[in-house]
Amino acid sequence: MICGDPSGTEYATDGCGGWSEEMEARGVVAGGAGLHPPHEATTVRLRDDELLLTDGPFAETKEQIGGFVLIDCADLDEAIEIASKHPAAGYGTIEIRPVLEPPV
């Protein structure tokens, strides 16, 4: 997990100074991505068959990130549908964050 405060967005397009290439050459990178800031997140919960959406990241700091999945889909509606089918949506919270597009 890569963390930082909001000022980190300044560096979002800086690239990784050869880190990615080096690590990929070593064969240690299985996947990953930069993310858009938390205020562009959408949080998905499923409770009693009701789909609950929230704008923004999950709020409670005691929540812990238990894993992540990189998905490639058409739009946010499809991402929500995929997230709502994950069992963790029923007891925990799934936060959807758009991935930064690689600079053209």
């Binding site: 562009e40 959408t42 058409a74 739009d75 946010l76 509606d77 959807i96 758009p98």
Partner: peptide
Amino acid sequence: TRAKQKIQHAHIPYRVPPAHLLPQ
């Protein structure tokens, strides 16, 4: 601005939702 950025970055689709999503 933030709302428009979210629509763009998170790819909120510009459409009338399909029938199965309309009730919600």
